[in-house]
Amino acid sequence: MIDPLSMLEIFRSYGRESTYSKLNPVTKFFLFVVFIIIPLISPSIFIQIFSLLMQIPLIIMSHSTNRITRSLRASTFFIIILIILNYLTTFNIIFSISMVLRLIGMIIASAIFMTGTDPAEIGDLLSKLRIPFQISFSFVIALRFIPVLADDVMMIITSQASRGYEIEKGGFLERVKRMIPILIPMIIIAIRRGHQLAEALETKAFGVSDKRTSYMRYRVNLLDLLMVSYGLLILIAGLLIVTTHLEIFPLLQL
């Protein structure tokens, strides 16, 4: 009934190019922030539905319709449980549904952003947000080394297995203990890699000049301007809904 892999499909990493992925990273980040703020400004179900509907153009632009529906379908059971649990504690079914919708809305917003943005763009974005280069760079370097370290883990597992070591044996605690002969060589390899990386960075003059220049240049296109205005409109509309709809739909008032 619960299939965690399909549930997480929504976050499958940066894939093919789409209209969304070609937007300026600042635009994408702005839209992401908008769709995180909107569900949070009010617990009303109306605003949650509004935020979900307004994300549809983004879903289409990022070619993630299939991914999101598949992921939501896989999470149906999980969503129902969340609603029930919420209901058991609040005894308000509309509120419960609204809370779950809020969660879904925010998950979709982050999924669109994460899957439609190249990790390197996120790094550039962080430096554009005046975050020190050392920090944004450590983000990029972490992503750079994920596949390398994954290969290392596979190599350690297979070499331990070829010496007759069984990792998947015994109960939960036993299995955790059995991870130690994998983890220790892993940590040593990672430290050694880190050292060589530091050497390489040193030879490429990392961190010498405060005036670091940037090779990447992101253009602001017409579509970026349109999308930013779309985000602004949604923010204004959201605030209007929060301040005015409560009188129009007294039933939904919470």
Binding site: D118, P119, A120, V140, I141, L143, R144, V148, R193, Q196, L197, E199, A200, L201, K204, A205, F206, G207, V208, S209, K211, R212, T213, S214, Y215, M216, R217
Partner: peptide, 29 residues
């Protein structure tokens, strides 16, 4: 240049990798 290329490539794309040292030294784009 070091022995293991995996430990000296620090970015996610070839052109950015070549640009890296020059960016650090503050060269114009």
């Amino acid at each position: 240049v070091f022995q293991n290329p995996d430990n000296q490539i620090v970015t996610l794309r070839v052109d950015r990798e070549i640009a890296f040292g020059l960016e650090n030294l503050g060269f114009p784009r």
